[in-house]
Design a protein around this nucleic acid. Structure first.
Lengths: 115, 115
DNA sequence: AGCAATAGGGCGAAATTTATCCCTATGCAA
DNA sequence: TTGCATAGGGATAAATTTCGCCCTATTGCT
């Protein structure tokens, strides 16, 4: 795994939440898991732009941060299901607020971002 | 400026808000500007971990996205003041929600993040 | 036998972001 | 005159994140 060279700053709530949500696909993973897409292959199909490698890595991080939990079914072919922990569920309203702001300002943002 | 090589995905509100908030210091800049720290040098003192270069870059991006606006006073030594636009102000409640979640779960997060 | 789906890790390269260093300019204070 | 504060950009290096390719394993279908 990669060793950070620049020390973390964990001063305030904003630093802390950033530590667990910062990652290109993490918010989306949480969202889709909350939406009922539990299996890695389903999530990959919902997020086709992400390489499967990174989804695995980010799922592992979300699990390490206790936002999701994982059940491995001892069958072949392998079957795995993720779900939000109670802690993870408390993030859903936060993510809703983010998404809502983006939706409300959709046109304007699209225009601004595309220069 | 840097030219992106991987196409943006701007499908949903979450993608859109990420486009304007993703950046190590952006949220903090918005927060402090809202808090009344208007001048670049003040902001640099409030965020000593960031190099002044990156703060400038991120301030420019926030301005390009119309979240903040800039007034240049034609004096020497130079004086500049930033403030939130009306659009930028609508982000403050969103940022509050993020910070509140982080604050509420402060101990747990600190422990999880530090392994 | 050959191929697809399932899950996931190793590893190196590419993409992207952030940090560092250096330079310009003006006015004021010691 | 030297040094500091002000604001900010260019160029380049370093850090970090994400991508892409390859390999393992099992079951079932054709």
């Amino acid at each position: 795994m990669y060793e950070k060279k620049i020390p973390l700053s964990l001063n305030c709530g904003l630093d802390l939440i950033a530590e667990v949500l910062y990652g290109k696909w993490k918010i989306r993973l949480l969202w889709f898991i909350n939406d009922g897409y539990k299996r890695p292959s389903e999530l990959q199909r919902k997020i086709p732009d992400a390489s499967r490698r990174v989804l695995n890595v980010q799922l592992n991080e979300l699990e390490a941060h206790e936002l999701i939990s994982k059940v491995i079914f001892p069958v072949a072919p392998p079957k795995v299901e993720y779900s939000l922990t109670e802690f993870g569920k408390t993030l859903i309203p936060v993510i809703s607020v983010l998404g809502a702001w983006g939706d409300e300002n959709q046109e304007r943002l699209r225009q601004l971002i595309l220069k």
